[in-house]
Nucleic acid binder design. Structure first.
Length: 273
DNA sequence: ATGGTAGCCGCGCTA
């Protein structure tokens, strides 16, 4: 049985339950990782998620903003939550699935919501940008992650809204976004160091070559997201080298950006097996 | 260090 993992920054899970259901019906994921749930754990719509076919739910939420959640058709062996930069922000949850599928080993799915970083790309002037850079340094050296990628006894993936578009073709205009937070050289360097610390394989780019544009986010601050296709690839799926060769298919559900009351991000689904 | 839109701790903050 192949395994489909989906990641989506939902920008409030409670007001978008209908489109979560629509994405689940379209993509049929076995594991769904959401970011920006903006929901305390005790207010989470557990029954609605169970009714979508996910009896297993791991939450790391907080009131009002941030927040991640991972839903699964299959049980978890373990759940772990990272707290980076000592801020108590809800920006990570990891679940481990038992080796009951064609992949043959336990699989740990790390679901991340990296800080957006504010508007000014200078850590001296903008504490939110400084936090983003520090967060990336901390996850790069985080033992559970570096150990996971190198462990021959299990598979691992890192998914989520990493809030950085590393390649020139991950943004609509490389030149015009070089000093825009999400595509600055310092962020790209930090993200590349994080990726190399695994080593992790950028699985999305094994399906769409680096010379082709690939986006997962289109700003709300534009009346028409299709106009000139001014998107960015902020959402990522990285696989451990043990798992990457098993990637079979990818879907970036761009249609979801045009659904009623959309998130500004669209779901990305990867099938392994 | 433009403004644009969206959501929640809602008339100010974060994205």
């Amino acid at each position: 049985m192949p395994l489909t993992i989906c990641t989506w920054n939902i920008n409030s899970v409670r007001i978008r339950l209908d489109i979560v259901r629509a994405a689940v019906e379209t993509l049929r994921p076995d594991v769904l990782c959401l970011q920006e749930t903006k929901c305390q754990d005790d207010k989470f719509p557990m029954n609605a998620i169970r009714d979508m076919g996910f009896p297993h739910i791991a939450l790391n939420g907080q009131k009002g903003w941030h927040g991640v959640a991972t839903f699964s058709r299959r049980p978890f062996q373990a759940v772990e939550k990272g707290d980076f930069c000592g801020k108590g922000d809800a920006r990570h949850v990891a679940v481990t699935l038992a080796p009951e599928d064609a992949l043959g080993k336990p699989l740990t799915v790390h679901n991340f919501y990296v800080p957006a970083g504010g508007d000014v790309p200078d850590p001296e002037l903008n504490p939110k940008f400084a936090h983003k850079l520090a967060f990336l340094d901390e996850v790069t050296a985080w033992p559970p992650l570096t150990a996971a990628a190198a462990d021959a006894g299990r598979h691992a993936v890192v998914v989520g809204d990493l809030n950085i578009a590393p390649l020139e073709t991950d943004v609509w205009s490389h030149k015009q976004l070089l000093s825009v937070v999400s595509h600055t050289p310092i962020e790209v360097e930090k993200l590349n160091r994080f990726q190399a610390s695994g080593p992790w394989v950028d699985v999305m780019r094994t399906f769409v070559p680096p010379q082709d544009k690939l986006f997962t986010w289109w700003s709300y601050r534009s009346p028409d997201y299709t106009a000139n296709d001014r998107g960015r690839r902020l959402d990522h799926v990285w696989a451990s080298e043990s798992l990457a060769p098993a990637a079979r298919a990818m879907t970036v559900l761009k249609d979801a950006r045009g659904w009623d009351k959309p998130s500004d991000h669209v779901p990305v689904a990867l099938t392994f097996g």
